[in-house]
Nucleic acid binder design. Structure first.
Lengths: 356, 356
DNA sequence: TTGTAGGCGTTATCAA
DNA sequence: TTGATAACGCCTACAA
């Protein structure tokens, strides 16, 4: 099919050794020879066989990501931005990105990692969301396969990661709402198995405390990271005898669900009710009304993660000594969903039902 | 690092040949030997090296997809569902999925394909959206690399594909709106370079014709497949002296943008204005109001595409003779965004501006 | 039923 | 500065 290194060598009456080194940029090749080799290779459309190279170098020159899915085919759409970042940064370093999907904590997920590790399919792995208790971290550590994570995982973790300081972020978000005059502030969380949930909840509570507001257990609702879950939780909150005037969603998707719930109850978000998200997705931006949120630039984070991973593989000469554990503090992006003042005459709705 | 086939062979005092064949399920191995081999392999955590296997078999056991991006990091989020389908079906056949991103028609895209083809990195490629004039189709055909496409590409194409009969779909959608009493029906399209645009536009026009409605050029607006583009186009349509009572979006995202535009203009979608999409995404489902759309099950389509690709590679013994060019007719899913009757007293808005 | 041997296309070691 | 040679780990004729 395609040309091999041997073809190039024969055409130039050189040894394959010389061709290989000329192409890989070794110093001990005469400029003239290199020129001829490079030109011939280009003309012949020669590219080194990835498989042969991998076998010889014992490197896959590939990294992997497993996208968590709730049901087959249904994954958090913000993951695409993340995946795009991984792909672009990997490609920039001539690495390939392998993508697969599996439900979190499933056998399928485990199998995938096992296969990737043992068939030496990837040199390293990106963990999309580090969980508080995460067998992947233990397994990969035990197997000796390099990995990086989005989120810092259990306390004291030694691997490279990028995390967003959710806690401080939530504090700021609560402070923002308080500054608008809100006193009845609720939170729709994520399942506890996600590391960030504890942080965000803590930040929410600390934000309340900083404003001298007592915590109200009935103002903490459970979401599941989906829009539908956010809607359900918000319907529940809005049906409380004394409903909140502001709702913090653990994610943008959750918040968008809450906005829909508010509309269903006849409320105008940004006037009758403030809603905020967390992620800074494009959905938040184009939502109606635009969603106040905490910026979390997934694309940039993903690129950074790949850079960290490749650095820890020793593949990026420049960056090895760099800080391998990065904490970003998210900025509050104020938009229409939390604009204006606090509703004065907000009274309980007559409808307590949940229609889903 | 990991065990090799040689380790397994030595431990059992067998030749590597026997081990290889026992594991690959060849018939000429005694049951007893096979049992011992399989057990030892499991115990030792042996998996064949993918690189060695690929080199020897001259097969990558991988397929590739290039996700089109508008700007870095920003891709159509519905692609994730598509990618998930590709990944799941590929994994089911022990194939890997390579994902990369590039702007359509860019040098980067071209480089990517060149590298994948010539370094024999993938056995086949999935084309996400076949374009009307598509150099990828020509190139891949010329290179002899198998590929399948979502969309049938230029007329007379010989490669396997899955397409959705947009034309019939749009006709049905228009018929649905007409049956509700709509007469002023507009369409927000996609850029012409996308193969489906011509089809959808034709279907829209034929739908009008079938209902005896004359085509109105001012009712055809241009979108760019983004939500923001849909919003802009809808603002334009709604600012017409005689605005439409129904808007068909070329995609769900476009339609969602249109819904936002309608809200901005103070219209209630489903009452003052009907809006429909095309794709059947989860966004359409959870949108507020829920979006009438044409079902286009991306996840299932993606799986089917991979099956076709692997079949054309001769990798699926069962399916080779199957129909390789599949046309699906999308079903209209009626939801709240097009429910109810036609607005009687719909008059031009006083605002003609576009604030974006 | 099992084993021997050769080679897939590279890169790395060593010698010239 | 260049070349011969030996792996890398696996699969597969072919031989036993």
């Amino acid at each position: 099919m395609s040309a091999t290194i041997r073809d190039v060598a024969e055409r130039l009456h050189l040894s394959i050794t010389t061709v290989s080194r000329a192409l890989d940029g070794y110093a001990d090749v005469s400029p003239e020879t290199r020129r001829r080799v490079v030109e011939a290779a280009r003309e012949m459309g020669y590219f080194p066989s990835r498989a042969a190279r991998q076998l010889r170098k014992r490197q896959a020159e590939a990294i992997g990501i497993v996208v968590p899915t709730l049901t087959p085919g249904l994954a958090d759409p913000t993951f695409l931005e993340f995946v795009a970042g991984l792909g672009d940064e990997a490609t920039a370093h001539h690495y390939d990105l392998l993508v697969s999907t599996a439900p979190p904590e499933s056998e399928a997920e485990k199998d995938l990692y096992t296969r990737w590790v043992h068939s030496r399919r990837v040199d390293g792995i990106v963990l999309g969301r580090a969980r508080a208790q995460d067998w992947r971290i233990e397994t990969l550590t035990a197997e000796g396969l390099p990995f990086v994570a989005y989120g810092k995982g259990p306390p004291g973790s030694a691997f490279p990661y990028v995390e967003v300081d959710s806690r401080t972020g939530m504090q700021r978000l609560v402070a923002h709402l308080v500054s608008l005059g809100h006193r009845r502030i609720a939170y729709i969380g994520a399942p506890e198995r996600f590391g960030f949930q504890a942080e965000r909840l803590a930040g929410y509570r600390e934000g309340l405390a900083a404003a001298g507001l007592p915590p109200r257990p009935d103002y903490v609702a459970g979401g599941d990271l989906t829009q539908a879950g956010g809607r359900r939780a918000a319907l529940h909150l809005l049906a409380l005898p004394e409903p909140p005037t502001a709702i913090l969603g653990a994610t943008d998707l959750t918040a968008i669900g809450a906005i829909h719930a508010a509309h269903e109850r006849g409320l105008t978000v940004g006037r009758d009710l403030a809603v905020t998200g967390f992620d800074g997705t494009t959905y938040a931006e184009t939502m109606q009304p635009a969603l106040t949120t905490l910026d979390q630039p997934l694309y940039a984070i993903a690129r950074r993660l790949v850079a960290l991973l490749l650095a820890s593989l020793g593949r990026i000469p420049g960056e090895p000594a760099g800080q391998m554990q990065v904490t970003l503090t998210p900025e509050v992006i104020v938009r229409a969903s939390s604009a204006g003042h606090v509703p004065n005459h907000f009274t309980p709705r007559d409808s307590y039902g949940m229609d889903h």
